[in-house]
Design a protein around this nucleic acid. Sequence first.
DNA 1: CTCAAAATGAGTTGCGTACCTCAAAACGCC
DNA 2: GGCGTTTTGAGGTACGCAACTCATTTTGAG
Lengths: 352, 352
Amino acid sequence: MAEDTVSAALTLKDIAREAGVSLATVDRVLHNRPGVRPDTVRRVQETIARNSFQPHVAAAELARGRARRFAFVMPLGSNPFMQQIQAYLSEMSAWLSARRLSIEMVITDVFDPSVLAASLEELAGGNYDGVAVVALDHPSVRAAINDLVDAGGKVVTLVSDVPSSRRHHYVGIDNIAAGRTAGALIGRLVRPGYGSSPGKIAIIAGSQSLRDHAERIFGFNQVMASEFSHLDILPLLEGRDEDDRSEQLISQLLGEHPDIIGLYNVGAGTQGVAKALTEAGRDKQIVFIAHDLTAMTRKLLLQGTLDVAISQNPGHEARAAVRVLLSLARNEPILSEQEKIRIDILMRDNLP
Amino acid sequence: MAEDTVSAALTLKDIAREAGVSLATVDRVLHNRPGVRPDTVRRVQETIARNSFQPHVAAAELARGRARRFAFVMPLGSNPFMQQIQAYLSEMSAWLSARRLSIEMVITDVFDPSVLAASLEELAGGNYDGVAVVALDHPSVRAAINDLVDAGGKVVTLVSDVPSSRRHHYVGIDNIAAGRTAGALIGRLVRPGYGSSPGKIAIIAGSQSLRDHAERIFGFNQVMASEFSHLDILPLLEGRDEDDRSEQLISQLLGEHPDIIGLYNVGAGTQGVAKALTEAGRDKQIVFIAHDLTAMTRKLLLQGTLDVAISQNPGHEARAAVRVLLSLARNEPILSEQEKIRIDILMRDNLP
DNA sequence: CTCAAAATGAGTTGCGTACCTCAAAACGCC
DNA sequence: GGCGTTTTGAGGTACGCAACTCATTTTGAG
């Protein structure tokens, strides 16, 4: 009887007692505040580790008072994937407000390095606890990100990374692997040509100068060269992610090459490409692979025009970015397995 | 100046003032405690809704004092998928203890309805806040689940569902869709036979009486019949999820049928199946699809023996189960998009 | 040994909610 | 109008930690 070792959760007070110091000292150690001898710091940390003590997040959150503010820097325009991410962020509003978190959207031209860098520099004075940014990889953007980090904020790159910066985390996929996946699928799904040619593969992107597109193209070519070298890859077309232009380019290409058996659309403009395929009456013969799951690609998958959609889950990216920022702000470990974004292969039968 | 509408977060006190009642009454309404006139209840709820007030979860968590206890009822034996789920749960220990949550594992024979039901009934007296269970669909199990629910606990079925029970949530995949996905992939990846036959497809499962296996087989056959009727599906083999037995069955089958072009393993025993394929020297010619990502299936994918692994993410299932139980216990809404388990198509190039 | 600087102890306050008690007010019924 | 019951108000305590102040002790340099 009496006070037995009831395995009730330990508190800071218990740690203080066991380490033979006062609560104030434990607090100083826990928050890296100055004025504690290295020796004492070690003793306290050891006590914490020995008991695998974890501060009660609810208590910590309540005590700190002020709410946390995050900023999301997202691109202008009507990119459906980006809009989906924003929609999922809005969907979290109840979750966020119950935790006294606020998110501010900063819509800017992320494709202009100087504009993006300026937007980021502006945030540096805003006293944000964290920033998520769809980042273009450019020296001035890198510098702006590093400034944010130096100002004490946490920075997460979203969808598009700046590996050379000191950002804390990247939430997005490996686009080279995505391109490889597209290549492997095209190579394995196409049926050998009926005529003399073994079959040609067409590829269209928004622009080669977009980093994610370039990486996908690189991965795609890698696989085609090494594993499907018998297939004939046609020169890359650039559709600028526009439906009309893409449709026109593909229509013309289909006219010139009656022996196309596979088609990979690296970027947007899928609706235009699909239209060209359908109007040429060749949507069932040509294996068509594109990116992202939208209402439109879903429809195309169900009707068989599109064979595979390679996608990254926008909801997952939105939530992962928020969770990572929150964990970073709390100095909590990140569940890296949970936050890793996968390359989803979506076909008609495994549509979510 | 003066008190302007600073958009500081509202508190219960603000709600009480605005509704013209005391804190105690708001508290009674918020927790469905008796002793409040219906009229007043409505007025308070309207005030809460109008301001879209969300109680501060951290404060609520701190105030309630006692920690939450969850139980996970998992199967005996060495099923690697189940062991992965358990491993991911262990990995969350820091996350859990920082939130004063505890998880107790209850290992039992989930394939024996009476044993499973008994284990569940035992938990009903344990005063758990929530239970996650890998559930066999059987009347006595259903009754036990309903008892848990009646006792006030939250119940989540994991991996395997009991739709007819009053469980609050199911965390797992649609196995019919998984089977359909396997069928569509086999049908599209195989190369037409070289001889007279268009090619035969072999299928092996653990047992037809396992619900998840039966559902996958159903989905597989559905797709094969409707879309790939030119392919010849061989009679189902039952390998009891054992490597040795599966290897033997497949070896024999390969000997009898030189024109097999596709092979689908519905359950476990993938290592045995792969061995039979390799030893017959036909692993590169036959399209092989199996389930789940383990160290072994990963190796088989990389070396090309296995063409596709269809999987559900065990880490996601583990975390989703915990999060759903926690949200249910807090009477918080569930982010259903987040908790939905997807059917992953894994090939060599999109391995996580 | 002296003294200033560094390190530590002791204590307070507040965060927003849950949960409880007790008294007071309002209500419904006869 | 009186009575018992129901509803409401007012208030307190506790949860574990952050953040702060101020007094006291320890330390190291000269």
